[in-house]
Nucleic acid binder design. Structure first.
Length: 358
DNA sequence: AGTATCAACCGCCACC
DNA sequence: CCGGTGGCGGTTGATA
């Protein structure tokens, strides 16, 4: 659960002077009315900072939307959200737009996220010194996507488990042999250092940070606010088969949406075909053509994915998860898990308990 | 472990 | 003729 920070905050005053429109768009209102350490509605605010290097990718900013949404759901600024560069001022993203930033604060940050990008050149040694200095002070530090490389270069990931975008995992490992790279995970936490894969995995990481602060109920509300179909756990593979389920036609998309929303129903090919307004035969054919999966297999993958998430959360008994995911009975779910993961649901629960929250 | 049943899948063909 | 669609029937695999 959330532990209030006792640290002073000298950077909030900077925010009122240098926080520009870009900063406000990311959720940090220039006239933010709360200050960490002071109560509002019985809650204490926390500072979330994102460091962006020159040439950062826009997806680095996406993780901030989680904390912005949390503020929106809560109805007040529980999180003070800031974007930083080494010395403040404008920084240019990989795709041409600029963001107004503040200089990195000292001894004040509760959580620091590090963004990255393909176009990012060498970061300065001052930054690495800063990260090494802040690591024991900040409650948690996270490398989002290629930001993992910055943490590795600063030596923060030595003998720690870490992940990054799958296509750069090999490079990360060869450049930094001391890092225990797990290139297929969505996100990993190892002793308060978090790392994630690229793109939307940063959002999943941010949701996990939020859950640590405020509990699962707020996370569910924020996920709904962000119109996320389902949350993904860190242990899930970046190359999850679910990511392949991106059909081109409206009709197959309708059927998939129907399946996601009605996972508890039997979901036969016939019922999915009806949702897609196609004959079962044509639906089957089209579905396989567009997703590379047969309808029954895709439904099973959806069920397993949701079941894995619920199992990892550990809040529901297996029998309730069986019902929620439409498996019908424990034996069917156990067999489906064994087919997909080679392990039983209980083994997955034990495994995720170790690897996600370790 | 063996068996019956049924849904899913897929090749083929016909129709529009 | 071609592409999209639907029906039929055999095979396969999961389940009871």
């Amino acid at each position: 659960m959330y532990a209030p920070t006792e640290k002073p905050n000298d950077f909030l005053s900077v925010a009122t002077t240098s926080g520009g429109a870009d900063c406000e768009a990311a959720g940090c209102s220039a006239d933010t009315s709360f200050a960490p350490g002071a109560s509002q509605g019985g809650e204490v605010g926390q500072s979330i900072g994102l460091f962006v290097p020159d040439g950062f990718e826009a997806s680095s900013l996406a993780s901030l939307s989680v904390f912005e949404a949390a503020n929106s759901v809560l109805g007040y600024n529980h999180y003070a959200i800031r974007i930083y560069t080494e010395f403040g001022g404008q920084v240019r993203g990989a795709f041409g737009f600029s963001v107004v930033t503040e200089p990195l604060p000292t001894n004040t940050l509760d959580s620091l996220l590090i963004g990255g990008g393909r176009a990012v050149t060498q970061c300065s040694s001052t930054l690495f010194d800063y990260l090494r200095r802040e690591r024991p002070v900040a409650r948690r530090i996270a490398g989002v996507g290629l930001g993992t490389f910055t943490l590795a270069q600063a030596g923060l990931l030595d003998r720690r488990r870490a992940t990054t975008q799958a296509e750069f995992a090999h490079e990360l490992q060869s450049l930094f042999p001391e890092v225990l790279v797990e290139g297929d995970k969505l996100f990993i936490e190892d002793r308060s250092i978090w790392t994630s894969a690229g793109m939307t995995a940063g959002i999943d990481l941010a949701l996990a940070l939020l859950e640590g602060d405020c509990g699962p109920e707020l996370v569910f509300a924020v996920a709904r606010h962000l119109l996320m179909h389902q949350r993904r756990m860190g242990s899930q593979s970046q190359t999850s088969d679910l990511l392949d389920l991106v059909p081109k036609s409206d009709r197959v998309q309708r059927a998939l949406a129907f399946a996601r929303e009605n996972l508890r129903l039997p979901l036969t090919v016939e019922s999915l075909a009806e949702a897609a307004c196609l004959s079962p035969r044509q639906f089957s054919r089209l579905f396989h053509l567009e997703t590379g999966h047969t309808p029954a297999r895709a439904v099973e993958k959806l069920r397993i994915d949701v079941a894995q998430t619920l199992i990892a959360q550990g809040r529901l008994p297996i029998s309730a998860i069986v019902h929620e995911t439409g498996f019908g009975d424990r034996e069917r779910m156990r067999r489906a898990f064994h087919r997909a993961t080679g392990a039983s649901p209980m083994a997955v629960r034990r495994d995720t308990g170790r690897s996600v929250m370790a």
